[in-house]
Write a protein that binds this DNA or RNA. Structure first.
Lengths: 337, 337
DNA sequence: CTGAAAGCGCTTACAG
DNA sequence: CTGAAAGCGCTTACAG
């Protein structure tokens, strides 16, 4: 490929001027010279080498994203929203998919550090992800899940406990005699928050209410297998609220296999609220995370932190909360569309 | 961050040796020196700068992927499979999501060229994508969809016409009196293939068979809206085969809204066969694309082409076909799981 | 086995 | 407004 030197030669100028033209600065270029440079560049199909540029400029204009599972539509939607926000700022989003494999996550972290991404948005598979590589590289990181108070990263999440409580409270208001929580892995931080929210709603019911919790992985397959056993028990719950939409789809599938009608025999509520949830059969009542707002804010925070490395210490103190929204559809028995 | 020079200094050696140690070559290093280098690197948390490395090495060890819509689970699964294959070869996969926006696709192409990815795997939004930027950079590209014979890229796809015919033939064998095709945008190359396969199956039915085609975008929302009108018509089809699973989910949703039972009142067949299709309600009969095999082969082809630029001309002649598989589940009325 | 030096393709003070 | 030169952090012939 043609280099800046080729262009300079053809235009009868220096590489400095070529750079000034392509970056609109930092020095002015006379219109005539600019024209010649542009013409030469067009003729040679010149494309500045972003690697060389980043090397001398000291910034890659690149934001890394690490998601646990890109095949999960929630992370797909999130990735898209983050990319929209990044592009608006002229940054490229690099997506790394951990495929639910912590080793894979580690490799993405290393790859991002080596490639000198300016900043990172991360949804870790782990409750306490290892930020040291980013810390050593002084790369600002924002986690879109709860992290320890002293973790060297910012975080931005909804209030999972409150949101989980809202979902359970909705079931309580339905007057069901028994409700269940299909939670994530029992000992994870996230599961603790869902559990506390769920139990708070049960406690506030003001009446006798059987309740039970089961745990499954986040995949439909896992959730379906667990639900299949659960729903076959004689005292199965009348309603189930889940920690993710994916799990809710597993519950719907299990109910189908067992010949249980939703919502007549079993009410179901999901959590995350991707666009797909509207097209479930039946349409899924769910707690919506404000994906676009979270994405826009995350990119804003991280881009600012990358631009002003001085405030690094402040940035890692950031613990922001976003709002959630309960979306009521047919799966809990409220609406028929 | 520490540089190779810092490490060399601390280890009392030269940057060349640091490079030899971290790359296991191309020159040998005495065990003692290697130890000192490794110790110094560990102490300084040295991470080689991949940008600088790529600049002098002439390769980025990076493969670009462009997908039309990462929120579509089919592309999510595909991205994951491609990343697995890339990682096995020590390459990093960079994912660019076009968000169904051709302008976005163009930007990803430009970004990949500027970042000097070694090769590209592409699923374009367009029937005739513009490969010139890649061609000028002599970056090998493989398209995972049909492309023109003289397009300067390789391609690897299933035989869509044959696969679409298999799906329609299955409906024909059910003895339904009328079947429909929910196809993609009417004038696209892909839609033509689905149509020909569908009509071939109809023609081979050997009996009176009403048939009809409708078109929708690939999203559930679009497919649902189109199906809602279609299924409300008095002579609605008894069975529908779709061009994608996403569209099939839209049909299931529309049937639900209209109170039609699947498969009793309406049989449905999807196309793509992601893992999610098994958890639809009811589980979706679909044509499975061999995602992992396609991904592995695509990476293999493109990586080889990047390694041997001499064979560039041969590479762009590659037009490979992969096999498909009809997976029969409950949605067409055959099985109940 | 190891070091000094040139080069990858940019950007940016420094002179003019 | 423009050019010659140093530097970003690596790799790799070239000498020794």
């Amino acid at each position: 490929m043609a280099t800046g030197r080729d262009v300079a030669q053809l235009a009868g100028t220096s590489t400095a001027v070529v750079s000034y033209v392509f970056n609109n600065g930092p020095r002015n270029v006379s219109p005539a010279t600019r024209e010649r440079v542009l013409a030469a560049a067009a003729e040679l199909n010149y494309r500045p080498n972003a690697l060389a540029r980043a090397l001398s400029f000291g910034r890659t204009s690149t934001i890394g994203l690490i998601v646990p599972d890109i095949a999960n539509p929630y992370f797909g939607e999130l990735a898209r929203a983050l990319e929209d926000a990044a592009m608006e700022r002229g940054e490229l989003l690099l997506i790394g998919d951990s495929s639910l494999d912590p080793e894979r996550e580690r490799r993405h972290i290393a790859a991002f550090v080596e490639r000198r991404v300016d900043s990172v948005v991360m949804i870790s598979l782990l409750d306490e992800p290892d930020f040291t590589a980013f810390e050593q590289a002084s790369t600002p990181v924002i986690a879109l899940h709860p992290i320890a108070d002293d973790a060297p990263a910012a975080s931005l999440t909804i209030d999972y406990e409150l949101a989980a409580r809202a979902a359970a409270a909705h079931l309580v208001a339905h007057d069901f005699d028994s409700i269940g929580l299909l939670n994530g892995p029992a000992h994870s931080v996230g599961a603790g928050q869902h559990r506390r929210g769920f139990l708070a709603a049960v406690g506030a019911a003001g009446r006798e209410l059987r309740h039970d919790e089961r745990n499954s992985g986040t995949s439909r397959a896992d959730a379906s297998a667990v639900s299949l056993r659960w729903l076959a028990e004689p005292d199965r719950p009348r309603a189930i609220t889940c920690a993710t939409d994916e799990q809710a789809y597993g519950v719907l599938h299990a109910a189908y296999l067992l010949g249980l009608r939703v919502p007549e025999d079993l009410a179901v509520i999901g959590f995350d609220g991707t666009e797909h949830s509207e097209y479930a059969v039946p349409p899924l009542t769910t707690v919506r995370q404000p994906i676009r707002a979270i994405a826009a804010r995350a990119i804003e925070l991280v881009a600012e932190a990358a631009a002003e490395p001085a405030d690094g210490a402040d940035f890692t103190r950031v613990r922001e909360l976003a709002g959630h929204e309960l979306i009521v559809r047919a799966s809990c028995g409220c609406a028929r569309d």
